[in-house]
Design a binder for these strands. Sequence first.
RNA 1: GGCGACGUGGCGGAGUGGCUACGCAGCGGCCUGCAAAGCCGUGUACACCGGUUCGACUCCGGUCGUCGCCUCCA
Length: 450
Amino acid sequence: MRTIRLHDSATGELTVLEPRDPGRIGIYACGPTVYDRIHVGNARPYVVFSLLKRLLTHEGYDVTLVINVTDVNDKIYEAARVRRMPSAQLAAEMTAAYVADTDELGLGRPDHEPLASRSIPGIVALIGALLERDAAYAVEGDVYFRVRSDPHYGELSGRDVDQMDQGEDVEGASLKEDPLDFALWKAAKPEEDTAWEAPWGHGRPGWHIECSAMAEELLGVGFDVHGGGIDLAFPHHENEAAQTRCGRGAELARLWMHNGMLQMGGEKMAKSLGNIARLPEVLATHDRDTLITFFVSGHYRQPLQFDDSTMADAAGRVRRIREAARRLVGGPSPAWSADLQERFFSALADDFNTPTALAVVAAWVSEANRSAGAVGRDGLADMLQVLGLETLLATGGDGPPEAVHELARARASARDQRDWATSDRLRDEIAAAGWSVRDGPDGPELVRRT
RNA sequence: GGCGACGUGGCGGAGUGGCUACGCAGCGGCCUGCAAAGCCGUGUACACCGGUUCGACUCCGGUCGUCGCCUCCA
């Protein structure tokens, strides 16, 4: 179990991960609002936190990963209205689509995937605690958080309350004591078709309260790592932190981790900008190994360029590792592997530096390719597993069909007769069938084209 | 305007006060009938201007530029 350091957004510094409970780590990451299929940008935190869990598990921690699903939200009501369907039905369908889409990433599921709609009692209880402590107030069925009642408000995202834009949101502005305040509970509106009973009225939760409630319910207050996209730092995470701090008298999380934005055309990938690539579409044209490799090729905190060229680069890395893997044998790796594995895991332990880790994998592959004798795959397997790329070691699936074998045999005899024209023509036919021939020292070999 | 991050070779993308990141692409060579795969070699890279230092791409200050947040947003 080595020392893990992570960048804490709250302090801006690398911080040693010291578990609340020895040997155990609780991680909560904000998941999607389900009003549409997710795009690749939405998949980044799913990948980052799933892989962080793998690293911590590898290091011997007992890790619980929670990624929520926001299934009650203004955007869902709006999208459901457009489609003329019940919002609960749209949310259910999109939740199922989200699960199916992220399943295709091949990283497994989080340990818990709570739904806001199923967490109402916890939400109501937390709002109740905030009201009791005067950190919130009810007005005409709405409940608002009193931002200025929290002296620490703004610390997570580094903002000074007095210098913040005090943008009025049109509806409800008049009900707030202070424009900075935000809704914990919204009274049911005629155009909204889901609502729950609460002591202060029929309605539904605001955006931020659900995460505080769900995280507390599943991980307890003061859990280890809270994560999500950097765009959530304010106001979402700031508000979450404030709610729990004021409602429970304790910090929600010990450390805050934020991933950088996926960019397309030099700008953040976002629906509002129209520069999105939906996850299912991306996975229809690129295999998941390429996508995962693409994600780990950049540091999680930095922006990452998504385009044909960067995906092609990732595909090249994948090819090279797979190619090397074909020549490996089962069992322990040679002595030189130990040093590389050490470098690999220290890179990950130092703020989860996956690009450096990937460079170590490349060095391992080069070393293996240089080696004359049989090379055991265990060391590489150990590293790739943590990057979610153990699939690169899978031995090749089905062999070529008989027709291709037939062509290969014909080509071999043409070559024996030094009939290069026929031989090359047959090689083209084999290629057309999806296979390539390599004439090695042990004779020709058929390899699936990638 | 406020807060924050960042500017690295053709592209992507790490990192460090003096020593090869890495990948993709390119170029030369080995191997091959030719290829493929692999191997070997190859690129005066660190936005600009000052400063600190024996020495800065790496620290400090400034300039310019880019991106993110400040409103829904992974």
